[in-house]
């Protein structure tokens, strides 16, 4: 294959990565933006979504498409319930104190990961894609399902955007993000909003996990990479800024796709990680501050 088609393939792969990353990172960004909580267990919600998708779809072995659709609904709901529980039992009791919350979510990361290891095992299991046609380009064939992933993720992003910007619930959320005390004084049930946001963030990650599982198998350690990438995305995009998160997800997703085709992925990750650390140190106002602006 010559250079042009090779680049085109890389761009296609990058776009898939970008949309899945945008969903995952949006969840992390929401949770930080509204609650000021850095959720280290976010990647585990992604993993849980994927593993539950395997469990649900294996209930209906006769019809992969039906099984997958069921998983797409049931799995995020179940993960949302887990997140609600974690918020009630742990985060709320810590009064969302920043440092204690990080330590607690690290604990949560291990708990979820190791419970999955206990009950699901150390296997990597595939889920059959709901559709199996291939799009035929002049140079190569491409999985039709990956295009479905792009469409589904785009629809979900739009729906989340609508929820936050055009509905009363979104208004309440944004008011809480802007000023917690004032929101409380105006009768907004801040604790319920926090629970809702935490669950919503987890559900976004879980949905991304469900969408990815026909491409990448379900495994109990699969949450670590999305966690790191989401962190990078959210920091580059400006913590708490949803628009920034989306822009960063596309820049990072597509460049990641392109870079990993041409360069060593480990080296790319090293450079990206260092770069993000430096951004966080030297551009803190553009990162932590933008949420307040």
């Amino acid at each position: 294959m010559s250079f042009g088609p090779h680049l085109f393939l890389a761009l296609l792969e990058g776009t898939v990565t970008a949309f899945v990353l945008a969903l995952t990172a949006l969840g992390l960004s929401l949770v930080f933006g509204v609650m000021r909580v850095v959720n280290v267990a976010h990647g585990e919600f992604f993993m849980l979504g994927a593993v539950l998708a395997w469990a649900v779809s294996s209930l209906i072995p006769a019809s992969p498409a039906l099984g997958f659709l069921l998983a797409l609904i049931a799995s995020p709901l179940a993960v949302g319930a887990v997140a609600l529980l974690a918020d009630r039992l742990v985060l709320r009791r810590l009064n969302y104190a920043p440092e204690a919350t990080i330590v607690a979510t690290i604990g949560l990361l291990y708990i979820l990961q190791q419970l999955v290891l206990t009950f699901y095992g150390p296997y990597a299991r595939p889920v059959t894609a709901p559709i199996s046609f291939r799009v035929q380009f002049p140079w190569f064939g491409y999985s039709g399902y990956k295009l479905v992933v792009i469409a589904a993720a785009a629809a979900l992003l739009a729906a989340t955007w609508y929820l936050l910007m055009r509905t009363r619930i979104g208004l309440v959320m944004r008011a809480t993000q802007y000023d917690r005390e004032t929101a409380q004084a105006f009768g907004i049930p801040v604790e319920r909003v926090y629970s809702g946001i935490f669950a919503l963030g987890a559900m976004l990650a879980a949905t991304a996990g469900v969408l990815i599982v026909p491409i990448q198998q379900a495994h109990y350690l699969m949450g670590l990479d999305p966690l790191l990438l989401s962190f990078i995305t959210v920091i580059i995009g400006g913590l708490g800024s949803l628009r920034g998160t989306l822009v960063a997800a596309f820049v990072i997703g597509i460049s990641d796709g392109v870079i990993s085709v041409f360069f060593s992925p480990t080296l790319a990750k090293i450079i990206a990680t260092l770069f993000v650390a430096l951004v966080l140190v030297f551009r803190p106002s553009g990162l932590f501050g933008s949420a307040r602006a």
Partner: peptide, 8 residues
Amino acid sequence: LLVGVALV
């Protein structure tokens, strides 16, 4: 799992 539970 123990590490996680202990941290929390």
